[in-house]
């Protein structure tokens, strides 16, 4: 393989330009794709929904200000005015033995729109703030996961041999490793110390930590299917021909292999987003990442789990938010894939 890299730059450039001209005559590929995407009504609706979610989350402080509720401070003995009557946020049971205290349910008014959690905090306001953190963490983690998984999968599948063996076994270690043990351990180690990884200093409430952990957990899950796909592609006629012609490996990877695995990657985006948001909540629970009183969709679901019987809305609301986001991403992903695929008939 080494000698193939000796090709001169000018030759590459020439080949690149030639390939571009041959494959996509007329307009540039991105412009074509964008035009196609714009014509895809479902994808445009999905994009609209995503933008709406992002804007709503960004406007969280505005909502909290309007509603006059502090989403980060327990409100255990407060009360609000509802239909002209004063209602406790935390309502002690008055029937039977009087056991238990239940937070206020959805009021469908500006104050406590979706009710309160077990600390008497406004779920709606927390939902919007939580969206910021969740989308950030899950988004970053998804990007990390896809990039690393593609790299590992493509390299392992294409080069095969001992490279494949080593990479595959590393993936096995990662997949079988009890990541929660690491999380429990880190959460305690970080109570007193700050981890320095290169220029990044990690404390227990730094979001880099959940991003890194969540981003790494699912690498095997994406990398192995990609490796499998590449393994098949490696033996397809056009790749064998390219290798036979002495075209450098990285070019084959970039021009022939990578475009063929993008479908899989795009499909994994919404799936990973959903899995990552939920995984992040498990880490927050172990005192890594989002720390109380801050919120993420995952942590709100966690809070809601303890209120499933009395106030199911606490867990349901962030769940619906996740479904909506993932759904929009999925439809948009389909649209992008269709738009990028030259074989798709223009509808």
């Amino acid at each position: 393989m080494v000698d193939t890299f000796s090709e001169t730059l000018s030759e590459q450039a020439a080949a690149d330009i030639a390939a571009e001209v041959i494959s996509r005559p007329g307009r540039g590929p991105w412009a074509t794709a964008f035009r196609r995407l714009r014509r895809d009504r479902a994808a445009m609706v999905a994009l609209g929904v995503l933008v709406l979610i992002l804007v709503a989350c960004a406007l969280a402080p505005l909502y909290a200000h309007l509603a006059g509720t502090d989403p980060f401070r327990p409100n255990l003995d407060g009360s609000i005015t509802l239909n002209g009557q004063s209602v406790d946020v935390m309502q002690p049971s008055t029937t039977g033995l009087g056991l238990g205290v239940t937070p206020i349910g959805p009021t469908w008014t500006l104050h406590y729109l979706l009710g309160a959690d077990s600390q008497g905090r406004d779920v709606a306001a927390r939902l919007l703030y939580g969206g910021q953190t969740s989308l950030f963490i899950a988004g970053m983690a998804t990007v990390i996961c896809l990039v690393l998984a593609t790299l590992v999968g493509v390299v392992a599948g294409f080069f095969g041999g001992w490279v494949d063996t080593v990479l595959s076994r590393i993936l096995d270690v990662l997949w079988a490793f009890p990541i929660y043990l690491l999380a429990i351990s880190l959460s305690i180690v970080l109570l007193n110390t700050t981890l320095h990884i290169g220029p990044i200093a990690l404390t227990s409430d730094s979001l880099a930590l959940p991003i890194a952990i969540v981003g790494v957990i699912y690498i095997p899950y994406v990398a192995r299917p990609i490796r499998g796909q590449v393994l098949t592609l490696r033996h397809s006629e056009f790749v064998l021909a390219a290798v036979g012609l002495g075209i450098p490996a990285w070019r084959i990877l970039w021009r022939d292999i990578l475009p063929n695995v993008t479908t899989t990657l795009i499909v994994f985006v919404p799936i990973l987003m959903a899995l990552n948001i939920v995984t992040e909540s498990a880490l927050s629970f172990l005192a890594i990442g989002v720390q109380p009183p801050n919120a993420s969709w995952g942590t709100i679901i966690g809070d809601g789990e303890a209120l499933l019987y009395t106030r199911p809305m606490v867990a349901l609301a962030p769940g619906l938010a996740i479904v909506l986001t993932v759904l929009a991403l999925n439809v948009l992903g389909d649209g992008v894939r269709d738009a990028l695929d030259p074989r798709t008939k223009i509808r």
Binding site: S118, Q119, S187
Partner: peptide
Amino acid sequence: DKAVDRNIGTYVQSVLNEIGYDASVKAIS
């Protein structure tokens, strides 16, 4: 990291903040 203990911890944190500290709460196994 039990539900009730976490809730108490979060409440204590808010009180410590109120009386002038920079408080955080950590729930561990």
